[in-house]
Design a protein around this nucleic acid. Structure first.
Lengths: 251, 251
DNA sequence: TAATTGCGTGCAATATACTGCACTAACAAG
DNA sequence: CTTGTTAGTGCAGTATATTGCACGCAATTA
């Protein structure tokens, strides 16, 4: 494995997990810890990460809370992202929601995928720089620092002018009766605009999102065409969704 | 086998495998490693791939040029950013251009600055998450992976609806006669829109930008109200700009 | 105190890269 | 046809990069 390739891999791991350990990297990349330490030192000198005892952390605490969230339960998110990616076909126009799960999806795309990806999440746009064949459309608006997405009238308006094949929607609350809901009114508006702009809507929901409801309604279950979730979710919980004709993928 | 043919083959392999090794290419294409290395060097110069020890990797603007560029000559950039920040007042609406220098500016803002910052650079928006008192407006559009900014009609149009107090402009070429110019037509349009939307325009230019010109004109010197540059730039070079009534800050 | 862990440095071995030079083939000008 | 020019190639020698190892240091823990 090339040196530069290994360092890219380290950066990717760091971005994905929010931290890296020298010992773990040494094992997973099959080089000595000395080499890893040297890599980390170099990358730190280049300002690409922050060196700490035992490993390294992302350089910008900016995305700290964001990256932190990304750490928790990353196993399930990883599986969901993997499964979701398989729904994508060449040359499609795809809308990607914000959030950590969707960032995972962006990072798991096939390297040679040729497609147009529309997103209102700056971190996702940046992550997609890695893919030479993907055209990225960034939707503007007021920037929500907590969610790391744009929101507001400009965002909703921009989505109005787009007709996408596929939309990947991050789900906060999903309930058989209530439908899709969320904790922010602005976020709900944006998600509605995304749904309205796409032919097929894929919901990405980890296990704990089921049977919960939040104050602001995004839409009904009938808005969804696919639902990607964890394998651990029992069949009886999924039954109402199946009844709606939603294609269920248990990752 | 023709040279051009071989190089196309290299690019294809790179595209397929995500990396190429000089030794392997030498064997599979039946030429010496020197020839392969020459090919890789040429292709790297042409910006088609990124040369690394042992072979080459796909050119990924995010990791390669942007982060790397942020490294180079960061001393001067740092000083310029520091000086530029002092032009900002509380509660202003400020447009921030893309580019590494402007990212530096974003990272050097006072912690408690209360302001609205408008930018078409996703990395800058993310960096501004740090500042609790700053409202960030992200301008959307087609995402330019190399420059890490949005461009195109949507970007220009969005700037039209904004009246800012201050605009910080990254400068690529500055010439007493030609004015402000750049290498990308799209970028020139966006910069023009930024200038048109701001009451005061601050140009940020490191020493090597002076006396150079590029194909696409952004505007004339009279568009500028301030010019922040390095202390090392001699007074006689700055004279024409002073004559225009531009306030010069030598950081 | 002793053991452990992570860190940094110097060293040697190997792999890779660059430089200058000579050779070839294609091609244009005389 | 001959000659000069150019681009492309390979080779030899030298320079640089990368890596793992041995060793000592510092901080933490048993």
């Amino acid at each position: 494995m090339l040196t530069a390739e290994r360092r890219r891999s380290i950066m990717q791991t760091l971005q994905r997990d929010g931290k890296v350990l020298a010992t773990e990297l040494s094992k997973s990349l099959h080089v000595s810890e000395d080499t890893i330490r040297r890599d980390l030192r170099e990358l730190a000198t280049a300002g690409m990460l922050q060196r700490v005892h035992g490993g390294a952390l992302p350089r910008t605490p900016a995305t700290a809370s964001f990256t932190e969230r990304q750490q928790q339960d990353s196993g399930a998110k990883w599986a969901i992202a993997q499964a979701a990616v398989r729904l994508i076909h060449q040359d499609q126009v795809i809308i990607l929601d914000g959030g950590t799960t969707l960032l995972q999806v962006a990072q798991h795309l096939p390297r040679n995928l040729r497609a147009t990806i529309v997103t209102h999440s700056p971190p996702i746009a940046v992550a997609l720089s890695e893919y030479p064949e993907i055209e990225v459309i960034m939707i503007g608006g007021k920037f929500d620092k907590q969610r790391q997405t744009t929101i507001g009238a400009a965002t909703v308006e921009a989505y109005r002018h787009i007709r996408a094949d596929l939309c990947f929607l991050g789900i906060r609350s999903l309930h058989p009766d209530v439908g899709i809901s969320t904790h922010s009114l602005e976020e709900a508006y944006v998600k509605r605009a995304m749904i309205a702009s796409a032919a097929e809507v894929v919901a990405l929901a980890s296990a704990e999102k089921f049977g919960t409801a939040a104050p602001y309604i995004v839409g009904s279950l009938s808005d969804l065409t696919h639902l990607v979730t964890e394998r651990s979710v029992p069949e009886e919980i999924l039954a109402p969704y199946r009844a709606q004709g939603i294609a269920i993928i248990r990752a």
